[in-house]
Design a protein around this nucleic acid. Structure first.
Lengths: 140, 140
DNA sequence: TTGGAATTAATTGTGTACAATTAGTTTATT
DNA sequence: AATAAACTAATTGTACACAATTAATTCCAA
């Protein structure tokens, strides 16, 4: 039987993907703590800052998250006064999530974050572009 | 005030990292289900297949996980009969984790997995090499 | 050598992820 | 219109992640 080098941790592609993802989320933490947001709550806010309002369905599609994750998370954002939920009158099964004035206000503080994170990651702009392109290919 | 395009989801680097990581772990699931392992349990087994035995501390360093994650996870692997825990006689604070015969036996089934995952990811070998290199730079 | 600092794994508590199920609503077919 | 199929968010249950604390042990400096 041949050697099983293929199972060595150092040979895996997905392990650095998994580890780097957690590492980068960790880097966000001090900045997000100032906003009182977790990373997942932050990406929900990113979508809402961009769209203003969005159905829960569409929100899940954008973030690759399901109702099991989003339902309790939106409850927390609602408790913080950052978002509001309403039923779609045309189809009451649908929940429409919209950002509140307070939620919009938080955007000002958030604006600094992407730049700060960029400085933390010790990769070049070229590598960042390459990385993003490959990751999006995986997601496609 | 200038436009805040920097907060658009499509401009983020870390979001595709986070999303792709979860996506790839999802791809493992059907294969790992056959072994009765979760993804995190699988990477612990990767280390143990490679090392035979390792201290909990070192295991955490390799996987970027702490005792809060590892302690309950190792209990589950122990219940499955795949690993054993023992105290280091020289320093009883230290836990030494070692793979059992049954654990080693599982390696045979696992050997197929990296190849199967490779086929699922629709990226080229060159892109995979690039990706791994950049991710390791982030982790370094 | 002894008492404080450091180390280690376990514990506790919060917040995701996600599979699977449920309950209510809408759509489509007869 | 009646009913089956499809759809939607909520719920339930399991398993991470990780910060913070705890308890036991070891190290180290006076």
């Amino acid at each position: 039987m041949k050697e099983d080098r293929c199972l060595e941790l150092g040979r895996q592609l997905c392990f650095p993907l998994y580890a780097a993802s957690r590492e980068v989320v960790r880097k966000y933490k001090p900045f997000l703590d100032e906003l009182g947001l977790t990373y997942t709550q932050y990406i929900v806010m990113l979508v809402l800052w961009e769209e203003g309002k969005i159905s829960m369905q569409e929100l899940g599609n954008r973030l690759y998250l399901d109702s099991g994750t989003l339902t309790p998370l939106l409850v927390k954002l609602e408790e913080k006064g950052l978002v509001e939920k309403a039923r779609n009158e045309k189809d009451v099964r649908e929940i429409i999530v919209s950002v509140t004035d307070k939620g919009v206000g938080l955007k000002v503080q958030a604006r600094e974050i992407p730049g700060k994170i960029g400085k933390c990651l010790n990769i070049s702009v070229i590598e960042a572009v390459q990385l993003k392109k490959i990751l999006n290919k995986i997601l496609e």
